[in-house]
Write a protein that binds this DNA or RNA. Structure first.
Lengths: 232, 232
DNA sequence: CAACAGGCTATACGCGTGTTCAATCGGCGG
DNA sequence: CCGCCGATTGAACACGCGTATAGCCTGTTG
């Protein structure tokens, strides 16, 4: 009644789920078992393992882009978390995280994709007056995106290496509740008590767009412990 | 003259370098070749591959702790970056990143370790008057650490999956220069233009320490796009 | 009805892995 | 000098992987 999907699609969805659950190194045979087919059939349909991964990337990119566009139109933020609320999308969310974890050029594309959308979100907030303007919106969005995604990725598999897709939405929401306090504080009251560092850096001749001049000009003041970059 | 290290140590250092360069999935035989020994000898000395990884974890934890303590005494911030400046420690820095990338419980321990030190750094800055006080220092340090480490990890292997340890220090410094602008701005001028969100959240009954009451009480205002958590 | 085509499976090959084992080497105490 | 014992090695084992191949089973077509 509700589902008579083609075998290709069934394989792709099984791959998406299994990759998300066990990581991108999940064996082909396991995916085959999940999709109730033989391992050879996957090769027959997708050519090779890498091609299958490519297909997963494509599908994921497509879904996230579509869904992000819908959310942008709706005007509400919170991407991955909100996306994962819909249980239907848990696998693609998990796949994104696994892809980020695996690294490589593909991960960069995902990040850039999210960063590009973050630019729009922040600009929208800026127009609405809730987000302070920046002298480098692109850079700010990039940094914010990398921090948000990175932090999420970092404490995601801290529990185990197996990701339970059924628990993922609840886990994301719980995590959101857990960190929203410090996060709100961090973004409401400046971490640094005065702007001397910022003004010093800005007057040192590196405009926002001008990245080439940002080399060793800043004398890197000694008195300040722990530039927030520093916990790393 | 300057070096007559035991074979165990030579193996461990080779493992550290190779794991850092190629990831924790690097084959034992490759490490053996680097250390000019046979693969069997590694097993003979360390028992198994996992034990070798355990030894690497231990060594890394020990070195970072010692060096972090020294830096804390010295009063200067910037941990991993500064550590990596000394070419000698490039391998342990790389190993930390690889361990974080691999995830698992061990990664959590590293993060917690760094977060614990971040608490001290921030407290020191707070006493010096350069860092604003927080109502949840532990939570703030945790979030800052996860963001810093996560962002670093996220765009680290974006170039390739092979990490060139010789280029790592330069790469870290370049990255630092690249993002210091938006970062300084982000931590000097509040991202959110007013504190209504924060006060609303705080008045919703969730004290800093009291995490259990932080469930779905906040009505999650509709007007604000992109809670900074949101770029993810 | 016969032949064909294609989705699909079972099996096998080649490779790389961690680990084991027997054998060899080398120094050191009895 | 003998004998032992740990360090060290190369070959072999067992296993899991991705992939190639040959065949089966079913529906369709001439």
């Amino acid at each position: 009644m509700h589902e008579m999907v083609s075998t290709d699609e069934r394989i792709l969805q099984a791959a998406l789920r299994r990759f998300a659950a066990d990581g991108l190194a999940a064996p082909l045979r396991r995916i085959a078992a999940d999709a109730d087919v033989s391992a050879g059939l996957i090769i027959h349909h997708y050519g090779s393992r890498e091609k299958l991964l490519r297909a997963c990337d494509l599908r994921t990119l497509e879904v996230t882009r579509r869904e992000k566009a819908a959310m942008l139109a709706g005007g509400s933020g919170e991407l991955l978390a909100q996306l994962a609320q819909t249980e239907k999308y848990a696998s693609v969310v998990g796949y994104v995280l696994r892809r980020l974890q695996a690294g490589g050029p593909q991960a960069g594309q995902f990040v850039d994709d999210f960063a590009a959308d973050a630019v729009e979100y922040l600009a929208e907030g800026e127009r609405a007056g809730t987000i302070s303007p920046s002298r480098d919106p692109q850079g700010r969005a990039q940094v914010l995106t990398e921090m948000a995604l990175g932090a999420l990725l970092l404490q995601l598999p801290a529990q185990r290496d197996h990701l339970d897709l059924a628990e993922l939405p609840g886990w994301l929401r719980a995590r959101s509740d857990r960190i929203i306090g410090p996060l709100l504080e961090l973004y409401s009251v400046p971490l640094l008590t005065d702007r001397t560092l910022l003004t010093a850096y800005l007057s040192a001749g590196s405009g926002a767009q001008d990245r080439r001049s940002a080399r060793r000009t800043t004398p890197r003041p000694e008195s300040v412990p722990s530039t927030p970059e520093a916990p790393s």
